[in-house]
Every structure is written in structure tokens, then in C-alpha cells.
Simulated scan of single mutants.
Amino acid sequence: METKVQGAIRHIFLTILTLTIAFSLQTAKAQDYKLFTKSIFKNLKYPSELSDNCVVTYTNLLLQVSNKGKITTIRLSDSAPELLKRALAAARSSFTLKEIEKLIHDKKLKSCGIVFPLAYLLNSDRCPHGFDTFNDMIKYYHYYDGEPYKGLTYNLEPMIITVYDNIN
């Protein structure tokens, strides 16, 4: 059951996501990259140390596209905890990029970033979610290496992943 604070946080989060998408260069539809989304869900596991410590995360996965239309880097924004960045480094080679490469080709994307908003929300009664945590969480979601992203972006629909407590 969702508390009032969790509901308020979810509402604010969805409002920010809507505004991000509305003001983007373009947005792809989720069905256009379903295998990519599944590969993220399957391979980019939320570290148990984060969920055990009630850490929620809102971050952007950035796929940098070169001037030749090739993906050169895949990284998380500065709002991601270091443990999740390490999980990305381990999982990156497992991502299914065929649909994203087709999207790049079909849309003739070059010298831009493809932004995929990711949210890891905790479904746990033991984890209180305050607005201070939420404000910290979104503060650097458009920052990479301490600087706001300055290029054009092609935004994918966000993915919200609910992390449940482990039952032992």
C-alpha cells in the first residue's frame, strides 16, 4: 500500500518525467525498443546494498551517439549511486542494442545523446521516503561528470523499476 508521501513523490517524479519528455527534441515509443528495455531490466540489477539501505534512484542512462551514428559510450548521470554505476559497467555488454541502432539509423541520429530515464523505486514498508531524499535524487540527473549535458538529445520513454524486499 502506498503512503501519502510515496504518492506525492511518485506524482512529482511523473511530472518531472513528463516535462523532460515534452521539452525534448524527440521521443521514441517504448514498443520501438522493447528488447533493449528487457535487457536493461534483466541485466542491470539494482544492488542489494542500495535497496537494503532504502536508497531510491532516479537517473538517466545516456547512450552517446558519434558523428558517424555509432554508440560510443553508455553511462549513467551523476544522480546514480556509485554502486549502480559499477553494476552498469558489469552489465553494459549484455544490453540488446539492435533496436537502438535501428532507431539511430532510421532517425539519422548523429552527434547527440539518447537519454533513457531510469527510476528505481522501493516497495517496502520499512523504507520511509522523504522529500529531502527525492530532491537529492533529482538534483544531478542531467549531469554527467559534474556538468549538465549540453548536446541535443533524443529521449526514450522512462522505465520505472520497482524493487521489492528480499524474502528470506
Rank of each mutant, 00 (worst) to 15 (best):
N43Q: 02
N43C: 08
K45F: 05
K45T: 05
K45C: 01
Y46H: 10
Y46N: 05
Y46T: 09
P47E: 03
S48H: 11
S48P: 13
L50Y: 02
L50P: 12
S51T: 04
N53M: 14
C54I: 09
C54L: 05
C54H: 01
T57H: 05
T59G: 07
N60F: 03
L61M: 13
L61S: 06
L62H: 06
L62W: 11
L63I: 15
Q64V: 15
V65K: 02
S66V: 06
N67L: 09
N67R: 07
K68W: 12
K68A: 15
G69H: 02
T72C: 06
T73R: 06
T73Q: 13
T73N: 14
I74H: 00
R75Q: 15
L76V: 05
S77L: 09
D78L: 10
S79P: 01
A80K: 08
A80E: 04
A80G: 10
A80I: 00
P81N: 07
E82D: 14
L83V: 06
K85W: 11
K85Y: 02
R86Y: 10
R86V: 08
R86M: 06
A87G: 06
A89P: 03
R92M: 07
S94K: 14
S94N: 15
S94C: 13
T96Y: 05
T96W: 00
L97R: 07
K98L: 09
K98Y: 04
E99W: 05
I100W: 08
E101K: 10
L103I: 13
L103R: 05
I104F: 01
D106E: 13
D106T: 12
K108S: 13
K108N: 12
L109S: 11
K110I: 12
K110Y: 10
S111P: 06
I114Q: 00
V115Y: 02
P117A: 03
A119G: 13
L121F: 14
L122D: 00
N123K: 08
S124V: 05
R126Y: 10
R126A: 12
R126D: 11
C127G: 08
C127T: 00
H129G: 01
H129Y: 10
G130H: 00
G130D: 12
G130N: 06
F131E: 13
F131K: 10
D132M: 07
D132K: 05
F134M: 00
N135S: 11
N135A: 12
N135E: 11
N135R: 14
M137E: 12
I138C: 02
I138K: 02
K139R: 09
K139Y: 04
Y140H: 15
Y140L: 06
H142C: 04
D145R: 09
D145H: 10
